[in-house]
Design a binder for these strands. Sequence first.
DNA 1: TATATAAAGGACAAAAATATCCGAATATAT
DNA 2: ATATATTCGGATATTTTTGTCCTTTATATA
Lengths: 144, 144
Amino acid sequence: MFSKACQYAIRATLFISQKSLQGERVGLKKIAEEIDSPEAFTAKILQQLARNSIIESVKGPSGGFEILDKNLDKIKLISIVEAIDGNQIFDGCGLGLKQCNSAKPCPVHDKFKSIRENLKHMLSTTNIRELATDLSIGNVFLKA
Amino acid sequence: MFSKACQYAIRATLFISQKSLQGERVGLKKIAEEIDSPEAFTAKILQQLARNSIIESVKGPSGGFEILDKNLDKIKLISIVEAIDGNQIFDGCGLGLKQCNSAKPCPVHDKFKSIRENLKHMLSTTNIRELATDLSIGNVFLKA
DNA sequence: TATATAAAGGACAAAAATATCCGAATATAT
DNA sequence: ATATATTCGGATATTTTTGTCCTTTATATA
Ligand code: FES
Ligand code: FES
């Protein structure tokens, strides 16, 4: 469904969000530990998220990553998915035709479209604060 | 969503189905042309489908690929997806946790689960004859 | 039986995704 | 100012996916 990079991105963003809710900034090492991801690869992904203004990065001692409070409401899951995986998953043909076009549809166009719209709706309406709050409550997890 | 191999597999299966409806067997070259896929790679995928008894292959002159009439009803899209991509897409965690487990769920478990169930239901109830018939009618297509 | 045709299968190649390493840049604290 | 902590960015490595090529095997038919 999503690339590993995207999965790490979502997990990392949620962990950073949780910390930001508590007013804490958090470093790469800690993030990679808490979401059980390869550290150097995670660093690349965090850079992408920072360039896309999903998270903020601060260099130097006591630096690390954080999310602006206003962004906890503004950023939806779909922002992360689009930043990392692009929108092929929403716009592309499920059977890999060069373009998904209802004027020249593939045999599963209608059925796929409806599922992709579900997915898109879910990702567009789920915000980060909501998920980070669930995490803080402690009944959901970021690693097995 | 699906690997390219899986997309080719579905397109190829539907094309073969359409021909089988007409009582015709069809060869690799023609298949690759009609679904716009790389020929040699498609050959590998057809082998996998044949080993999984989704399609039948016949060697030699006037050989090629076909689908048994009874299988046109029996084979659902999900059979193809599982044969090529496995069931990670249905069973795996959307955020990449080692296992999707409602006893220790990730923050999007419930939301993902519902979408994956939609997808699974759609793939489980869509059979090949139905899609091949649509193809024959000519209002859906296997290449752009 | 000989020949031609078509898929099967193994080895290899290229491209993309995932992952690592290390020096440079930068901010903080002393 | 200096030392230190931390992200940034470029180069490289590994793994997986996608794709190719060539030989072997099976089979129909002349
Ligand atoms: S054309 Fe295939 S999903 Fe729209
Ligand atoms: S635990 Fe993540 S989808 Fe079930």
